[in-house]
Design a protein around this nucleic acid. Structure first.
Length: 492
RNA sequence: GGGCCAUUAGCUCAGGCGGCAGAGCACCUGACUUUCAAUCAGGGCGUCGGAGGUUCGAGUCCUCCAUGGCUCACCA
């Protein structure tokens, strides 16, 4: 590769960062890092109707949260800025003027209403909705007349009517488009702002992009953009179109399919590491069979050659599995810090407690993280350490509280614990085993009801881990309370 | 409707030059354990979208069809 690789992620700030967008950003970053190139973030806010600053900052936030750091762009700056298209209008005007001067583009005075009418008529009669080029050769009288009517013109690019345009795509190979299917498309809107197909090309050239890695939906736009490159005398970059991400029903991903934005996944308790790993595997595959890929490792192995062509249907189950993996493998302090906001949000603890009891929370997370798939779930499963619960799990009541001697056993167990000298994992376990042994019972006969009594659940970490962490006072109190509950509620 | 892209197990994907269909997730079973999870060990007869064709031989090459997606905006 002669030039240093420069690639960009160019979202339009009209919403939150979609997982599809996140993956496009990821693949760009992967490609840049693998090739020791530069990864640029550019905000395409030329749609003045829909673009918002809030959306732009949300996208920036999500990207940062995912750990997808760019080298040039918003907040970072760079030699090729500004990185917001709305601040680059002068450049577009200069470039489009060149096209006008050279007769490669022309003003079109057709109104949106007229265009829409013609398009619908064409569609109705089964024809392709093409612009007919009627303003290509307007006489000065006609122009004067339109101007007198107060019409504000758009600018269209003259596209050759014959021939073909070939797109060389790094992922899909050569794709040929007949020029006859194209029309003279609008490159400048009547409000003086360029359209995507123009601004994008001007910027990609001005910012010296070597590769354009973007979603498949842009493949059909590429021949148009190539005509812009040609008209402007720009050298073509290399193109690579990555497959789309579809909903489980194969339709385009939308809100009705549940979480679609990075922030939603974050709020549901997915770690950035998991989302990155999952997205890495969605559309790209390593040479080996491994599934757990951190960013660094992927950067080393990444190649556009192994990006597949098929649209991927995202499968939350696999994301969840990956998340469970990271939940138990990542640094304990890190996971603890990640779960605390969820606990606070659920009212399990408050800000103050999260600081004072940090070490305690950490120990709890340590024994509990194995069983949870998300941070949200983890927060739920450790809530009983901090708050009393008011219900016992239904299934547990039937299995463990309905036994003849359940209440009596719990009372005895509580007494044994109360009288223990040392209160540790080993001493409490020994006490339980001794007690049940002396009664001719299995330890499980006491362990199960105790778990239900002190956690409200039938599942959870090892009982003696829980007992020690919960503390003697709480354990004894909850065991006695459970015994009372049984006497009152279970009719013999 | 036109153009373009795709179609291998329920899902994500491997299968350079055509030569006996694979992995992970999910699912089921067993081991371990105080429960659950984790972990380990097992469990897949898939018309490789369909139909033709080329070939000794096709998931792999060619043609047609079907299905899905993208696109044809003064959106990106």
């Amino acid at each position: 590769m002669p030039n240093k690789v420069r690639v960009r992620f160019a979202p339009s700030p009209t919403g939150s960062l979609h997982i599809g967008g996140a993956r496009t950003a990821l693949f760009n970053l992967l490609f840049a890092r693998h090739n020791k190139g530069t990864f640029i973030l550019r905000i395409e806010d030329t749609d003045t109707e829909r673009s918002t600053e809030e959306s732009a900052s949300q996208i920036v936030r999500s990207l940062k949260w995912l750990g997808l750091d760019w080298d040039e762009g918003p907040e970072k700056g760079g030699e090729y800025g500004p990185y917001f298209q709305s601040q680059r209008l002068e450049l577009y005007k200069r470039e489009v003027q060149k096209l006008l001067d050279e007769g490669k583009a022309y003003y079109c005075y057709c109104t949106p209403e007229e265009l829409k009418e013609r398009r619908e008529a064409a569609l109705k009669s089964g024809k392709a909705p093409r612009y007919d080029g009627r303003c290509r050769n307007l006489s000065s009288e006609q122009i004067a007349k339109f101007k007198a009517e107060g019409r504000k013109p758009t600018i269209r690019l003259k596209v050759p009517e014959q021939g073909q345009t070939e797109v060389y795509d790094l992922i899909r190979g050569k794709v040929v488009f007949e020029n006859s299917v194209l029309d003279d498309f609008i490159i400048f809107k009547s409000n003086g702002v360029p359209t995507y197909n123009f601004a994008c090309v001007v910027d990609d050239h001005a910012m010296e992009m070597t590769h354009i890695i973007r979603a498949e939906e842009h493949l059909s736009n590429t021949p148009k953009q190539i005509h812009v490159y040609n008209a402007l005398g720009y050298e073509l970059p290399q193109f690579a179109h990555v497959p789309m991400i579809l909903a489980p029903d194969r339709s385009k991903l939308s809100k009705r399919h549940g979480a679609t934005s990075v922030e939603e996944f974050r709020d549901q308790g997915y770690l950035a590491e998991s989302i990155i790993n999952y997205l890495t595997l969605l559309g790209w595959s390593p040479e080996g069979n491994e599934e757990i890929f951190g960013l660094d490792k992927t950067i080393e192995e990444f190649s556009l050659k192994r990006v597949n062509k098929t649209a991927a249907i995202y499968d939350v189950k696999k994301l969840t599995w990956i998340n469970g993996h990271y939940l138990r493998e990542l640094d304990l302090d890190y996971i603890t810090k990640q779960v605390i906001p969820f606990m606070i949000k659920k009212g399990i603890i408050d800000e103050q407690q999260s600081k004072e009891d940090y070490e305690y929370i950490k120990k709890i997370v340590d024994v509990s993280r194995d069983r949870a798939k998300t941070l949200d779930e983890l927060a739920d499963t450790i809530a009983f350490f901090f708050k009393d619960f008011d219900e016992y799990e239904e299934k547990g009541i039937r299995k463990h509280f309905s036994k003849e001697n359940a209440a009596e056993l719990l009372t005895k167990g509580a007494e044994v614990l109360e009288n223990l000298q040392e209160f540790t994992h080993d001493t409490t376990e020994k006490a339980f085993r001794d007690l049940t042994g002396s009664l001719g019972l299995k330890a499980a006969a006491l362990i199960h009801p105790t778990r239900l009594a002190i956690t409200g659940r039938t599942i959870g970490p090892g009982l003696f881990d829980i007992i020690v962490l919960l503390g003697r006072e709480k354990v004894v109190e909850r065991m006695k309370k459970a015994a009372e509950w049984i006497n009152e509620n279970i009719s013999k």
